[in-house]
């Protein structure tokens, strides 16, 4: 047992960076770390972290997902249990939803007492990035600048599983120089859906094309999202259709690390 939570002046956050951010978008992870540090948290990165298991769970492979979840719990559980961290924060609505809502599904029933205890412990203190910034750290103004128009696409898991919506919008509205514009039919799914994007590529693409039309209609220079998976879908389509990938993770905008014209990245 190290120092207890109350002894620390600054809350200590364990960053769960997610496998997609780790391998495809490390800049998003760094932006998240910088934001947390700037707004009063100490960040640690448990290096043995990998994936939360969501892809396997959503595809119906619960035995496999359970093994991945157990790895997550074995790593993060003791940190929370021993009071070494106060929170687990991830820059992803869907990975947080996996931990907070679906781990308990994986460990339902008898014979999982230890996991059930860890799930309860961990899910209690796991937050999506903007949720943690606003609800726990009390951030109202991020002190970032962006010289263009921004719109916000609420990713489905963030919106409907976690019911996190006002937090990212409030933070985006505090960006200096940015004009926030509406995204038509903003609550419609972008069509990513994990393996759905592969197994039902035609439907996924048709859904995504509608989102692309909305994005173009909004005229926004940047579309902020809370999940890099949805960002991959939208940018993948935008770029293929020759419109430039203007979807960015909300952390990059809030951290001021987004160039004026993201499509030229």
């Amino acid at each position: 047992m190290t120092r207890s939570n109350s002894d620390r002046k600054r809350p200590r956050v364990a960053m769960f960076v997610t496998c997609m951010v780790d391998t495809l978008y490390p800049g998003v992870g760094m932006a998240a770390v910088e934001l947390l540090e700037r707004h009063g948290a100490d960040v640690v990165f448990p290096e043995n972290q990998t994936c939360c298991g969501q892809p396997a769970f959503n595809a119906g492979y619960r035995d496999e997902a359970r093994r991945m979840a157990r790895h997550f719990l074995d790593l993060f559980g003791p940190l929370v249990d021993k009071g070494e961290v106060d929170a687990i924060v991830a820059p992803s609505g869907s990975c947080v939803a996996m931990v907070k809502h679906f781990y308990e599904v994986l460990f339902e029933g008898p014979g999982h007492n230890n996991e059930q205890r860890l799930v309860a412990l961990v899910s209690e203190v796991t937050y999506e990035l903007t949720q943690y910034l606003v609800d726990v750290l009390g951030v109202q103004d991020v002190d970032a600048e962006y010289g263009g128009t921004i719109t916000y696409h609420p990713c489905c898991h963030l919106l409907r599983e976690l019911e996190v919506d006002s937090q990212p919008r409030q933070l985006l509205a505090s960006i200096k120089g940015a004009e926030i514009v509406d995204l038509p039919a903003e609550q419609e799914c972008c069509g990513f859906g994990g393996l759905f994007a592969i197994k039902n590529a035609g439907i996924s693409t048709a859904m995504g094309q509608r989102k692309v039309e909305s994005i173009l209609q909004s005229g926004a220079d940047a579309v902020a999202v809370g999940d890099v998976s949805c960002m991959t879908q939208m940018n993948g389509l935008l770029k293929k259709m020759g419109h430039g990938g203007r979807v960015v993770h909300v952390a990059e905008l809030l951290n001021g690390s987004t160039p004026r014209t993201p499509e030229r990245q």
């Binding site: 190290t2 200590r12 364990a14 960076v17 951010v21 780790d22 391998t23 495809l24 978008y25 490390p26 800049g27 992870g29 760094m30 770390v33 100490d42 960040v43 640690v44 990165f45 448990p46 290096e47 043995n48 940190l79 070494e84 961290v85 994007a197 592969i198 590529a201 693409t205 995504g208 991959t232 879908q233 940018n235 993948g236 389509l237 770029k239 293929k240």
Partner: peptide, 28 residues
Amino acid sequence: WTQSRVLPRIAPRSFRALWSDRGGKDMG
């Protein structure tokens, strides 16, 4: 996927590599 979309390449350096460059804390 690529019939209708592009996919970013794996980043030249992963988050964990960037983190270790920065001298960041491990599990604490």
